[in-house]
């Protein structure tokens, strides 16, 4: 009796374990990255201050410029974007490093509303704007170069938007201070690797 009971217990334990391992097996494989090793170097722009009004950025010089300058490509205005001096843009989906070729068409000079495309707004009660994961702004610059931009933060100092001090509106860093990284291909080709 005793022996039989133990055998059955073993059997049932084995059965349960078998069932569990079966269900785990289906999700344990293929979790490693298959990212591309980039050849061009990405520039990171930290804390570009748009809190006092729109800020104009030139990708070819890598700096903010005056509105009157003929070299700006992209205007950061709250969570919206405009493109100037003939620059055009489109939003693509994917991982920044893996976007190795810029599309040759489908760019637009139209203003771009960031919320719902490259930004996500959490709504009440926290009212947080975060860059939407997997969205890349691809730009054809004013001087016909191809570039890609990944937005990183909408707030001063790229804070952790899940932290207590961020959730608390009293201690939340200023908004409309942009951090992003970009790659521009100087040779005019669509290669963005």
């Amino acid at each position: 009796m005793e022996i039989k009971f133990n055998t059955l217990k073993m059997l049932s334990v084995a059965f349960i374990l078998g069932a569990f391992s079966l269900s785990f097996a289906s999700c344990s494989k293929n979790d490693e990255d298959d990212n591309v090793i980039p050849e061009l170097e990405a520039e990171t722009v930290a804390d570009l201050d748009g809190s006092q009004g729109p800020v104009f950025f030139s990708l070819s010089t890598g700096t903010a410029v005056e509105e009157s300058a003929t070299t700006w490509d992209i205007k950061f205005n709250n969570s919206n974007f405009s493109f100037g001096n003939g620059a055009e843009a489109q939003v693509m989906e994917g991982i920044f490093d893996n976007l190795v070729v810029a599309p040759s068409s489908a760019y637009s000079m139209e203003d771009l509303a960031g919320i719902g495309s490259v930004y996500t707004y959490s709504g009440p009660p926290n009212h947080i704007v975060t860059p939407t994961p997997g969205r890349i702004l691809v730009i054809k610059t004013h001087d016909n170069k191809y570039a890609k931009i990944e937005l990183i933060s909408y707030y001063l100092g790229n804070p952790d938007t899940n932290s207590e001090s961020f959730i608390n509106l009293e201690t939340r860093p200023d908004s409309r201070i942009y951090t992003f990284r970009y790659i521009i291909q100087p040779d005019g080709s669509t290669n963005l690797k």
Partner: peptide
């Protein structure tokens, strides 16, 4: 094709199956 942002770098990465 499902993306999230790396908590360290805030850069986009793919969501792992797990």
């Amino acid at each position: 094709r499902a993306y999230t942002r790396d908590p360290e770098t805030s850069q986009t990465v793919a969501v792992k199956r797990s």
